Amino acid sequence: MAEEVRAPLAGTVQSVLVEAGAAVEADDELAVLASGGAEHLIYAPCAGTVLAVRVAEKAAVAAGDVLLLID
């Protein structure tokens, strides 16, 4: 079953550092989220393959929104 990578807080997606099909290791950087004037790195919770990227750069997200799927 795919692992959902969710936004830990509301903000704006500054950049997405991976694309669908990319192999990732646990703790690899996946995206950068800007919130409250600070940048927050989003890390892979597990090793696997990125199945889907569910957000675009500059998109606003709420806390808990799914950003990526990893299998």
Rank of each mutant, 00 (worst) to 15 (best):
E25K: 14
P8H: 07
L30T: 01
E25P: 12
D27W: 07
E29W: 09
E39R: 12
E25N: 14
L9N: 09
V16Y: 02
V32M: 00
G37S: 05
V32L: 05
E29I: 11
A20H: 01
S35T: 09
E39A: 15
A23G: 10
A26R: 15
G21I: 02
A22E: 14
A20P: 03
V5I: 06
D27A: 13
V5T: 05
A7H: 04
S15P: 06
A22D: 15
A7F: 04
V32G: 03
L17Y: 02
S15V: 10
L17D: 09
L17E: 11
A31W: 08
A38I: 14
L9S: 07
A20S: 07
E25F: 10
A10S: 14
S15D: 13
E39F: 14
V5P: 07
A38P: 09
E19K: 15
V32R: 00
A34H: 13
L17M: 09
D28A: 08
G36Y: 01
A20W: 02
D27R: 11
A20D: 00
V16G: 03
G37P: 06
V18H: 00
L9P: 06
D27P: 07
A7Y: 05
E19Q: 15
E19C: 13
Q14G: 10
T12Q: 13
G37L: 06
A34G: 14
V18M: 01
L9K: 11
V5A: 02
A26P: 11
A34L: 15
S15R: 13
L33I: 08
A22K: 14
G37N: 05
E25C: 11
G11H: 05
A26E: 15
E19I: 12
L30R: 02
A22P: 10
V18S: 00
V5Q: 00
A10K: 10
S15N: 10
A31T: 06
G21A: 02
A20R: 01
T12F: 10
V18W: 03
G21C: 04
S15F: 07
S35A: 15
L30G: 01
P8R: 04
S35F: 08
G11N: 06
T12C: 11
E39H: 13
L17S: 05
A34S: 15
E4Y: 11
V32I: 11
V32N: 06
D28F: 00
E19W: 04
L33Q: 04
R6L: 09
L9T: 08
A20Q: 01
L9Y: 11
L33N: 01
Q14F: 14
V13I: 15
E39P: 08
G36D: 08
G36H: 04
V5Y: 01
E4W: 10
D27H: 10
E39T: 12
L17V: 06
V5S: 01
D28I: 00
G37C: 02
A22V: 11
S35I: 08
E4D: 14
A22W: 07
E29Y: 09
V24S: 00
A10Q: 13
V13N: 03
A20M: 00
S35Q: 02
A31F: 10
A26H: 12
V24E: 01
V5M: 04
A26L: 12
V13R: 03
S15H: 07
A23L: 09
A10F: 12
V16K: 03
E4I: 10
L30A: 00
E25H: 13
V16Q: 02
A38V: 15
Q14V: 15
